[in-house]
Amino acid sequence: MADSTSEVFSASKFAERVEASGLTGREIATRLGVTPAQVSALRNGRRNPSMDGLKRIVEALGGSAVDYLVLPDKERWTLRHFRVAAGLTQLEVSQDLGVAPAAVSGWEVRRYKPPRALLPRLAELYGAGEADLDAAVGYEKLASPAEGLVALAQSVIGVVEVALAAAAAVDDRERQTLLSAVNQHLERSLDSLSSAVRGLPEGQLRLAAVDAVRQMAELYAAANKACR
Results as ranks from 00 to 15, higher is better:
Ala2Val: 12
Thr5Ala: 11
Ser6Tyr: 12
Glu7Ile: 05
Ser12Cys: 06
Phe14Gly: 02
Ala15Val: 00
Glu16His: 13
Ser21Cys: 06
Gly22Ile: 04
Gly25His: 08
Gly25Pro: 03
Glu27Cys: 05
Ile28Asp: 01
Thr30Asn: 10
Thr35Pro: 02
Thr35Ala: 08
Pro36Val: 08
Ala37Asn: 13
Ala37Met: 13
Gln38Asp: 10
Gln38Ala: 14
Val39Phe: 01
Val39Asn: 07
Ser40Gln: 08
Arg43Val: 00
Asn44Thr: 12
Gly45Phe: 13
Asn48Gln: 10
Lys55Gly: 10
Val58Met: 02
Val58Ala: 04
Leu61Lys: 01
Gly62Asp: 09
Ser64Ile: 00
Ser64Thr: 12
Ser64Tyr: 00
Ala65Leu: 02
Asp67Gln: 05
Leu69Trp: 04
Val70Thr: 15
Leu71Asp: 04
Asp73Trp: 05
Lys74Gln: 11
Arg76Tyr: 14
Arg76Thr: 12
Leu79Ile: 03
Phe82Pro: 03
Gln90Val: 08
Gln90Met: 14
Gln90Trp: 03
Leu91Asp: 14
Glu92Trp: 11
Asp96Lys: 15
Gly98Cys: 11
Ala100Glu: 13
Ala102Ser: 11
Ala103His: 00
Ala103Arg: 01
Ala103Val: 05
Gly106Ser: 11
Trp107His: 05
Glu108Pro: 09
Tyr112Gln: 02
Lys113Val: 02
Leu119Phe: 04
Arg121Gly: 04
Glu124Arg: 06
Gly127Cys: 07
Gly129Ser: 15
Glu130Arg: 09
Leu133Arg: 07
Ala135Asn: 10
Ala136Thr: 03
Val137Glu: 05
Gly138Ala: 08
Lys141His: 09
Pro145Gln: 07
Leu149Ile: 01
Val150Phe: 00
Val150Glu: 00
Ala151Glu: 09
Val156His: 07
Ile157Met: 08
Val159Ser: 12
Val160Gln: 10
Ala165Gln: 13
Ala169Pro: 01
Val170His: 03
Asp171Phe: 12
Asp171Ser: 14
Asp172Pro: 06
Arg173Pro: 03
Glu174Leu: 14
Thr177Gly: 15
Ser180Tyr: 10
Ser180Asp: 15
Val182Met: 07
Asn183Thr: 09
Gln184Asn: 11
His185Leu: 13
Arg188Val: 10
Ser192Asn: 09
Leu193Gln: 08
Ser194Ala: 15
Ser195Ile: 11
Ala196Cys: 06
Val197Met: 06
Glu202Asp: 13
Gly203Asp: 04
Gln204Trp: 01
Leu207Trp: 04
Ala208His: 02
Asp211Val: 08
Val213Cys: 13
Gln215Tyr: 09
Glu218Gln: 12
Leu219Gln: 14
Ala223Gly: 03
Ala223Pro: 03
Asn224Trp: 12
Lys225Met: 14
Ala226Pro: 05
Cys227Val: 09
